[in-house]
């Protein structure tokens, strides 16, 4: 059973994405990157990202991640801020520490692509 199924599949992603995106928008370390984007399409992308992080059905590739974050000059601090918001979201939803660790491990696999290094 994947983490995705374990924590409740699509319903869990739906519950998580609003909370997660709200936290990101409220976080002064990273919210400037979201000022000019269309919220609705960004929300859909966040959902795709969370589905991937939870090990659900997706076809996200490192190339997509690299392309999407190109020229943004993101640093390790930005990446960590997003990860922190994700952890806090999962804690809000009472996801167990073991699952949280596994989800963050998935996120770390795309770190280099996100940072374009």
């Amino acid at each position: 059973m994947s983490i995705y199924e374990k924590i409740g599949g699509e319903a869990a992603v739906d519950a998580a994405v609003d909370i997660f995106y709200r936290k990101v928008l409220a976080d002064d370390r990273i919210n400037e990157f979201f000022d000019t984007v269309d919220m609705e399409s960004q929300h859909t992308k966040q959902k795709a990202f969370l589905t991937m992080a939870f090990g659900g059905p997706n076809s996200y590739t490192g190339k997509d991640m690299r392309e999407a974050h190109k020229n943004m000059k993101l640093t390790e601090d930005h990446f960590n801020a997003v990860a922190e918001n994700l952890v806090a979201t999962l804690q809000d939803l009472n996801v167990g520490q073991e699952e949280i660790d596994a989800i963050i491990a998935v996120c770390l696999t795309v770190k280099d692509d996100v940072l374009n290094v």
Binding site: T44, K45, K47, T51, S59
Partner: peptide
């Protein structure tokens, strides 16, 4: 896009 029912 994703062909997984996510990106819509």
């Amino acid at each position: 896009g994703c062909r997984s029912g996510v990106c819509q």
